[in-house]
């Protein structure tokens, strides 16, 4: 009984022409590199003396992540395009389950590019990007070898639109909700692993998911 509507916005999206193949190759290579790094690290860990470092009472660790970020469409389906993004942070590990820290990074939420797009105002080249720099207070718990993260904060989000020979850049602070699940192999004072994260941005009603290679280092133990 319902009308199935193909609205103008759908048509508009359908007009985009994005050449995916070089990026797909790049992604495949990156995944191979990530998996190789994880495997090597796992092997190195097996060769090393486990337990050399005893559990300290307090630790401050830093970590850096690099990986791919995808936006979830409102239907909950992952959008095709993914972008290389980075995050980093620090955690205070007071010797119990709960660790507290901060998380930031540079997230490319969305990128679009259309050449010679036809519009009511003539043909134009169109470029758009949406990036975000989060500042999040993160709670972390290590539960049975898995690292669970949950956090709240704000993100400085910037939109850039280029069309009709005019570039428009606008920025807003947005509340940001963060959750992640990670797995990390300890190796001396280092750790290497994978982290899956979800960022949710207020006002925009956007959710982004990322898979990132996670490198961590215990800066201070006491």
């Amino acid at each position: 009984m319902n009308i199935i509507r193909i609205n103008k916005s759908t048509k508009f999206y359908m007009n985009f022409r994005i050449n995916q193949s070089p990026k797909t190759n790049f992604k495949m290579k990156s995944i191979v590199v990530l998996l190789s790094a994880l495997f090597s690290c796992h092997w190195m860990q097996a060769q090393s003396n486990r337990g050399e470092i005893t559990n300290p009472l307090y630790t401050i660790s830093i970590h850096g992540d690099v990986g791919f970020l995808k936006m979830l469409a409102q239907s909950g389906v992952l959008k095709k395009q993914s972008n290389l993004s980075y995050s980093f942070g620090a955690l205070w590990e007071p010797g119990h389950l709960l660790n507290i820290g901060i998380e930031s990074g540079f997230l490319i939420l969305e990128k679009r590019s259309v050449e010679k797009m036809n519009t009511d105002f003539g043909t134009t080249n169109f470029k758009a990007s949406l990036t975000s720099i989060p500042a999040i207070v993160v709670f972390n718990m290590k539960l049975h070898k898995l690292n669970l993260y949950g956090g709240l904060g704000a993100s400085y989000t910037t939109s850039s639109i280029e069309a009709f020979d005019l570039k428009t850049i606008t920025s807003r602070w947005l509340y940001t909700y963060y959750a992640a699940l990670g797995y990390s192999y300890p190796f001396h004072r280092f750790g290497i692993g994978l982290k899956g994260s979800i960022y949710s941005f207020s006002k925009l009603n956007k959710t982004d998911v990322s898979i990132m290679l996670d490198l961590s280092f215990d800066v201070l133990n006491w």
Binding site: T119, F121, A128, L130, T157, S159, I161, A163, T170
Partner: peptide, 16 residues
Amino acid sequence: TYMIGQIRDYTFAQLR
């Protein structure tokens, strides 16, 4: 999803 500014940040052509 990529337009987050105010109406006055964009030209009419951009918005349309």
